[in-house]
Design a protein around this nucleic acid. Structure first.
Lengths: 344, 344
DNA sequence: CTGAAAGCGCTTACAG
DNA sequence: CTGAAAGCGCTTACAG
């Protein structure tokens, strides 16, 4: 079917070894030989067969990225950044979505399709530590996101507690006294959002205030609808909050929608802070104040770390797994700062 | 390193052929033999090497999907749907983004990484017909989206002209008389959006109205920012429009943001219709009326068609390429219908 | 600097 | 119903 090394070798009158040397830029090839081989390659339109190379070398040049859902712009942005970072290392990205389900996350982490990929970047939601315990050493795994595991894997995530405290401090600075947290889980044993919730608690305590647990709203997921449902409940409280810190921007946007529906003024009556800095937050009728994780840094660090493990010689002891903390910033917009007067 | 067929064969006391037969569910294997082999497989933890299988069969089980950008929720949704549809055929999806650049789109269509993939689904923006002309027959290609090419490839897209006419008809039915189109291109030779623009023109003419070309606004891209810039220009016109039909929802959302900023009432003063039905449009302060393409159908049809070509016997003449038109609907929301009174 | 040959782990005619 | 063997297209010690 296709043109193989052998065809090129025949045409150039050399062995396949020499052709292989030329194709892989092996330095010690005589210039004349190289030219002759190159000409044969061009004439025949030869292109190396990646599969055969992979079978021989054990490397595919593919890394997998598994996120809960691409429908969340945060993960779409992250995926884009990972694809770009991988391209820098001449790697391609195979994308998986887990729907945040523990079973899917476990399957992926256990090496589903592992023969096809050199490494895996996984952003888990409901995966538990024990799901990770009997994982084979290959392909290497880098974890992303808020969930922390006492397990020997690199983990790239911003400091969620510090970021949450920054958000709550901002709201306290605006004089807000009833600050709700939206995005806890009903099941107290499983708290994917526990770090952001902890930050909310810590900052309130540090300010000498008692965290009001009735202002902690559990949600089913982390989508706009969850934020809308939670906000409705909060507004129906005898004493509604004057601020909302949402687990993420989608939840915050759902809350903003309900506030608009009910005619509640933002930020005058209720201030809102999200988390992720997705683009939607910059274009609503009220733009959204949010925590902006450095997504490019997250992607770059994750890919760099993964590639380093992929390329590590198997006989040497690998570097110990690390927690790496990319930066984050608070981006203040209308949902806490109010709107500049109309340009008319 | 890993456990191979040979190891299993040795342990089960059969030939590799028999193990292969069991692994691939070849029917004619004696039950006793099958059990013995299965036990050996389980004990050794054997898992087939996909790379070796691919080298032998020429099939990887991977299809590539190339979209302009994942940051547009429409493409994120589409990618999700394609991943699901591919999973039905036991295929995995390799994701590429082209940034809508002709060079990237050409590279992908010409078979970049073609040894790794069984087929390609491409949603082009600026690709031209000539870029497609000297494409090798393999891997098969299915095209998506508004751009039409007089080239022998399957093409899955909703009827963009009919959909645009539906949107404009809706606005006309609301009594709007100055209906702008936002999302044309400056360069008149390259009009990715030409079908939706044509629909705008045709429906106005059919209603006995003259399309006002000064209400056709060119944009650099199809993002929120482009919609915001365009809306600003429209509002600064001596006689601003009373309705906007946007190329897509992102552009429409950018326009809505500017309308809110300027204190223009939607839909009373300006009604807005988008295109794509992304989730953001359902949660703004003013929800967005839009054309909803049947994304699941698009993904399913594209994958089905691609898999059929992948599995077609190479010696038989392949089925002729087809244009397939999945359905679409108009979803009416507040940006044209107004808001229901507050629930208080 | 270059060649002949083994082998990565499968699948698949070809026999029996 | 099962086995022995070739071969997919590479890379890479091993020679020379």
């Amino acid at each position: 079917m296709g043109v193989s090394l052998k065809d090129v070798a025949l045409r150039a009158g050399v062995s396949v070894k020499t052709v292989s040397n030329v194709v892989n830029d092996y330095p010690h090839v005589r210039a004349g030989t190289r030219d002759r081989v190159q000409r044969a390659i061009d004439e025949l339109g030869y292109r190396p067969n990646a599969t055969a190379r992979q079978l021989r070398t054990g490397r595919s040049g593919i890394i997998a990225l598994a996120v809960p859902e691409l429908g969340n712009p945060y993960f779409a942005d992250l995926a884009t950044a990972v694809i770009d970072a991988a391209a820098h290392h001449a790697h391609t990205v195979l994308l998986d979505h887990t729907a945040g389900l523990r079973a899917n996350e476990t399957l992926v982490s256990q090496g589903f399709r592992s023969h096809l990929i050199d490494g895996l970047i996984l952003s888990p939601i409901h995966l538990e530590r024990e799901d990770l315990l009997h994982r084979p050493a290959r392909p290497p795994l880098v974890l992303l996101g808020e969930r922390e595991y006492d397990a020997p894997f690199d983990h790239i995530a911003i400091d969620n507690v510090a970021a949450a405290r920054l958000a709550v401090r901002h709201l306290l600075g605006l004089g807000r006294r009833r600050i709700a947290f939206v995005g806890a889980r009903r099941d107290s044993r499983r708290q994917p959002a526990h770090l952001r919730l902890r930050g909310w608690r810590e900052e309130l305590l540090a300010a000498g205030r008692t965290p009001r647990e009735d202002l902690v709203i559990a949600t089913d997921g982390y989508d706009r609808l969850d934020g809308a449902v939670a906000m409705t409940r909060l507004l129906d409280l005898p004493e509604p909050p004057d601020a909302v810190f949402a687990y993420n921007d989608l939840v915050a946007l759902g809350a903003l929608r309900v506030l608009a529906e009910r005619g509640v003024k933002v930020p005058e009556q209720v201030a809102v802070v999200g988390f992720d800095d997705i683009e939607d937050g910059r274009y609503g009728a009220v733009t959204l104040t949010t925590i902006a994780p450095d997504k490019a840094a997250i992607a770059r660090l994750a890919v760099d770390r993964l590639i380093a493990r992929i390329e590590a010689a198997p006989e040497r002891t690998p570097p110990p797994p690390r927690r790496i903390l990319p930066g984050h910033t608070l981006v203040v917009r209308e949902s806490t700062a109010g709107r500049a007067p109309h340009r008319t």
